[in-house]
Design a protein around this nucleic acid. Structure first.
Lengths: 143, 143
DNA sequence: TCTTGACCTCAAGTCGACTTGAACTGGCAC
DNA sequence: GTGCCAGTTCAAGTCGACTTGAGGTCAAGA
């Protein structure tokens, strides 16, 4: 049989056992049975976990990812959803690029105080208007 | 006098009053006094808020931002810190770009199931190895 | 003077994605 | 047969950045 122990799944996927239980509870993955108390997973859970990891990396929430699987468990990926997320990523990328360039400039800028550097002030205005305008929530990967 | 009411600061900066109080508590901004119970802020708090917004947009935590101000309140921006953050942003940007391209491909891909699309599978392996290898925590801006 | 209501404080709640802790169980080696 | 210990459950805790709620105060307008 190719049923995998939770520890084995954790080892092969790099996803902690606690997270696997959590994902199961959320309906993101399913165990195929038990040996005593112990969960057994089919080997294809690894592919599923990869799919989940990809979704997370692309910025999908677990909620959204869960919705990408049909009740039968097969992936049901909505192409429009993918395009939309791609657009969103693109926007984020553009913003981050501007920010990166600004940071680089500020890091190299010879002005005594950053406040006297025109580039820095321009960046600042951009950020301020970002905060000011719409109720935009922004978050970036920590560390 | 150019002292601003908290509501005025909120209006001009787009930052909710509750957040202003929270930032004050965290030492990110300071009020210059009170009129009765009401906080009064100096107009330069607006610039400070812009600085904070920029820091947030660049992915700095409030902690880190707080450390960017000297005890006297003047910005004390560490150029190496800026470069480091720029590098980090650059890495994020590269990852997101790959993800975006992958999503676009998947959205346009004619394969019946995404699992049969080589590009999609490649993306998947990338994401899986990301999750697998180091304990990398990833998060992207929601909505 | 009295009322109003915006602002105040402090504690607690929220959100997402997990992790941690306490108490328990059961297959397997001895 | 029995003890070990990796696995199990369920509740609660964590983290960051705020928001919300209850109950209180006070400057200003009628």
């Amino acid at each position: 049989m190719n049923a995998l122990d939770i520890t084995e799944v954790a080892r092969r996927s790099g996803v902690p056992a606690s997270t696997l239980r959590f994902y199961e509870e959320k309906g993101l993955i399913a165990s195929v049975g038990r040996r005593g108390l112990r969960r057994l997973f089919d080997a294809d859970v690894l592919e599923r976990l990869a799919l989940i990891a990809m979704g997370r990396a692309a910025g999908f929430s677990l909620e959204e990812i869960a919705r990408m699987f049909a009740p039968d468990g097969r992936p049901r990926i909505d192409r429009r959803m993918l395009s939309a997320k791609a657009e969103q990523l693109d926007k984020t990328i553009r913003e981050l690029s501007a920010m990166r360039d600004g940071l680089r400039h500020a890091a190299a800028c010879p002005a005594a105080s950053h406040m006297e550097c025109p580039t820095f002030r321009r960046l600042l205005r951009g950020a301020a208007s970002g905060a000011t305008g719409a109720r935009s929530r922004k978050r970036l990967p920590p560390r």
